[in-house]
């Protein structure tokens, strides 16, 4: 069975849960920006939770099915249609052979995940089907999908229509979006005042927001503790001797606009990082549109782990719900 791409949408790419074990070579984690939504979509169509799906941002693709399959779309609110007939989000439905899946305009959120029973079965690269465009790795020839592509799938008909994730388990960012931060890494480079201001101010998602990272603007510039810059670090007070970047770490080049590094981020570099967004909240960033107001909230490790457990429990509830 193949999915015939009639219109690719905007930077729609094949993603799974990502690539493990190559970060030390500069090959990023990759995988869905909202891994919670990807897992839920796969569960709805009876796939393994880590099966490859399509991740579409802001705009959906148009896809013709060559065989009948169970499909589910999770994540952003982007009205779903099969041959023009509206379908429920976070709920499985059937697309018959010859029918076309398409989408209307975005209402909320940023990214949808389209799971098809059997999963997308393009070749794996370094243990994952995730597309890493900069390195031309994974997906379809290492790039976003294009009109005319024919994507192979595992070909099962799946469990059929009507399986649904209850509203309470559909995880979405609030307004303003609350992103929890564990201070650490090079936090000591900031003055106490700057550190406090970072959490007091309201920030907005900047237009530069993609799979590599999300930039934020609108808060006060951050002041650094005075020092003579160490050998090899570079002259700007926000520079360090190039090191690794943690997933979710927050760098602030020149002290002005924080950037949260996401799934396809550079693996290292020469900017100080003030800590990282906790793992439980990284999915939420994948659903933020430019201009969305954001508050960063300071947490400690105990709170980070509690949040991680909450997210895990929600996934477990979906598993129970869908049997």
């Amino acid at each position: 069975m193949t999915l015939k791409i009639k219109n690719p949408g905007l930077a729609t790419s094949i993603q799974d849960l990502g690539r493990i074990g190559y970060f030390h070579l500069g090959i990023p984690l990759g995988g869905a920006m909202d891994r919670y939504a990807l897992r839920a979509a796969n569960m709805l169509v009876g796939n393994d939770e880590g099966s490859a799906c399509l991740e579409a941002v802001f705009m959906g693709p148009e896809i013709e099915f060559t065989e009948t399959a169970t499909v589910a779309v999770t994540g952003a609110q982007l009205p779903i249609k099969v041959d023009g007939e509206v379908q429920e989000a976070w709920t499985s439905f059937v697309v018959k052979a010859g029918q076309t899946l398409s989408f209307d305009f975005l209402q909320a959120g940023a990214r949808i995940y389209i799971a098809v029973s059997g999963g997308i079965t393009t070749p794996e690269a370094l243990g994952s089907r995730s597309t890493y465009s900069i390195g031309a790795l994974g997906g379809v020839e290492g790039r976003a999908i294009q009109a005319g592509d024919e994507l192979p799938t595992g070909g099962s008909e799946g469990p059929g229509a009507g399986r649904t994730v209850p509203e309470s388990l559909r995880r979405k960012p609030g307004t303003p979006a609350r992103l929890r931060v564990l201070p650490g890494l090079y936090w000591h480079r900031l003055t106490d005042e700057a550190g406090a201001g970072f959490f007091e101010d309201e920030w907005k998602v900047a237009p530069e927001a993609d799979r590599m990272g999300y930039r934020f603007k609108g808060g006060r510039p951050l002041e650094f503790v005075d020092r003579e810059q160490p050998f090899g670090a570079g002259a700007d007070p926000s520079n360090i001797v190039d090191g690794c970047y943690s997933y979710g770490s927050i760098q602030v080049p020149g002290g002005t606009e924080p950037i949260v590094l996401h799934r396809d981020a550079v693996s290292g570099g020469g900017y100080f990082t003030l800590g990282a967004i906790i793992s439980a909240d990284m999915d939420l960033i994948g659903q933020l549109q430019p201009h969305t107001p954001v508050k960063f909230e300071k947490v400690d490790m105990t709170q980070s782990l509690a949040a991680r457990k909450d997210r895990k429990d929600m996934l477990e509830k979906i598993r129970e719900e869908l049997g």
Partner: peptide
């Protein structure tokens, strides 16, 4: 720590 998933060890702040 770098978030709840990384240990970060800096040997020295200069190269």
């Amino acid at each position: 720590f770098g978030g709840d998933e990384h240990v970060y060890v800096e040997m020295d702040d200069e190269m």
